[in-house]
């Protein structure tokens, strides 16, 4: 390259770097032009994202479905046989059904807590331009959404509203490394801080020096002043491992979140919470399962199925009789 051209490009680099630094300074000093430009982009992108979301929603979880294929193989076989004739409509129907089920769960949890919520569909996820973990939802300021409102799924907390435009909002997920939430161990009054780690696992630091953490301890949100950004009593996660290292004043633990942040289709934004703290009433309760034992009877070709809530070892005796 000629020396003239090289000098020209160097000068250009310097000019553009100075321009960039000028823009960064403006932004850090809180000039509203840069902030409003992003808000305008969000308003512009929201309808496009909403449209694309309908097409990409089934494709979006394609790879995670492959990852979990072995777990759902038997379920898939059953579904395949039943839905063969509806193959063309299946993708969209299943998607809508899934969203409805999630919405039902979200409204159920919100109803138990007495929260006034606005339901929203997830229309975007993350971005190419940031390392932070976010989702875009199709509800904005016209729906009553404001910054720093709590966002929940059908099983617990999801994150907080980070920015709002007229028809869409960006939610900072609780898995983001910058996310912090005050939590309480259900059943005790021990409080701590939960840190996002970039995955479905979280780090819990207990603030109470005399408090102890046990495996499977359930955590609920502690709540913030005026319920912003966090409402109290929402299930957050449960302890899966306690840090045994000595030398720290308080105990630490690894926590697994209740909400599956990779499979969010519908969420709710809490716009109003009840006066009192719902305490531990929103903690997910284990569903009772019925165990079915198949017992062979005297006849060589007949078998009867009995259902029992507790395992009773009767099968072996009856089976040996049948052999005789």
């Amino acid at each position: 390259m000629a020396a003239g051209g090289s000098n020209r490009s160097r000068l250009l680099v310097i000019i553009l770097i100075v321009t960039s630094l000028f823009l960064i300074t403006l932004d850090l000093r809180g000039v509203s032009v840069t902030k409003s430009s992003r808000s305008a982009t969000q308003s512009f992108l929201a309808p496009i994202q909403r449209g694309v979301s309908d097409v990409f929603s089934p494709v979006g979880s394609f790879f995670s479905d492959i990852k979990n294929f072995s777990k759902t193989k038997s379920q898939l076989v059953e579904l395949k046989a039943a839905n063969a004739r509806l193959k063309t409509q299946l993708v969209f129907n299943e998607d809508i059904k899934g969203q409805l089920a999630k919405l039902k769960g979200v409204l159920n949890l919100a109803g138990r807590g007495g929260y006034k919520v606005v339901a929203a569909r997830v229309i975007g996820r993350g971005s190419a331009s940031t390392f932070s973990q976010t989702i875009t939802i199709d509800a904005g300021s016209t729906d009553g959404i404001q910054k720093d409102m709590t966002v929940m799924s059908d099983v617990g907390i999801v994150g907080i509203v980070k920015s709002v435009s007229a028809s869409s909002s960006i939610v900072l997920l609780m898995s983001d490394p910058t996310f912090r939430i005050g939590v309480r161990i259900a059943g005790t009054q021990s409080v701590g801080v939960l840190f996002g780690q970039g995955s479905s696992r979280y780090q819990l630091e207990l603030l109470d020096t005399s408090g102890t953490i046990k495996d499977k301890d359930i955590l609920v949100s502690l709540g913030s002043e005026n319920d912003r950004p966090f409402v109290p009593g929402l299930p957050v996660g449960y302890v899966v491992g306690v840090d045994k290292t000595t030398g720290t004043l308080t105990q630490n633990a690894t926590v697994k979140g209740y909400s599956n942040l990779n499979g969010l289709g519908v969420v709710s934004i809490i716009i109003e919470s009840p006066k009192g703290d719902p305490k531990d009433s929103l903690i997910p309760k284990p569903t009772p399962t019925a165990t079915i034992y198949v017992t062979s009877t005297a006849g060589p070709d007949t078998t009867t199925a009995t259902s029992s809530p507790t395992p009773i070892p009767t099968a072996s005796k009856s089976a040996s009789k049948a052999k005789k």
Binding site: V13, L16, I17, T19, S20, L21, F22, L23, I24, L26, D27, L28, T34, S37, R38, S39, T41, Q42, L45, G124, G126, S127, A128, S129, T130, S132, T134, T136, K162, S163, S165, I170
Partner: peptide, 21 residues
């Protein structure tokens, strides 16, 4: 253009600086 991303939490102009370099 990347700085306009609504979900970006970095200051406006940071991507311009990085990609110019």
């Amino acid at each position: 253009i990347l700085d306009f991303s609504p979900s970006a939490d970095s200051p406006f102009g940071k991507w311009a600086l990085v990609l110019t370099l």
